[in-house]
């Protein structure tokens, strides 16, 4: 199984990840190699095995419905690239 450069570009777009045109080829090569490595999983029949999402066989703990957080906007926005009137600014969103 190998990935084409077009597929790499498609995935990169899905992940909103800019990659240089001259690197696409090498990504395709690396990823194809990794896919080959992954293909080794197929050596093993796993029919009927329950997928394991988590190392701990536990259930979710629930939090009481109480407000514990105070307004920290100023602190949080000092590290923001662009803010105005308390809002985070981004290029125009077109719907």
């Amino acid at each position: 199984m190998s990935l084409t450069t077009d597929e790499v570009k498609k995935i990169a777009h899905l992940a909103r990840l800019g990659i240089d045109e001259q690197d696409v080829e090498s990504y395709a090569r690396d990823l194809s190699g990794i896919l080959e490595l992954m293909a080794r999983m197929n050596e093993l029949n796993t029919d009927g095995i329950e997928p394991m999402a988590h190392p701990m066989d536990q259930v979710q703990r629930l939090r009481d419905d109480v407000v514990t957080e105070r307004d920290n906007r100023e602190k949080f926005q000092t590290i923001a690239p662009q803010v105005e009137a308390g809002l985070y600014l981004v290029p125009k969103v077109i719907e």
């Binding site: 979710q60 939090r63 514990t68 957080e69 307004d71 906007r73 949080f76 809002l87």
Partner: peptide, 30 residues
Amino acid sequence: GAPTAYGAAPNTQACAVDLGLPGVLPVLNE
């Protein structure tokens, strides 16, 4: 644990978890 009240000044009810700061984790409300 941030409040859900409607109509607050922008981003004053968005805590570290709501902002998705690096390293934060969700805990489910009962």
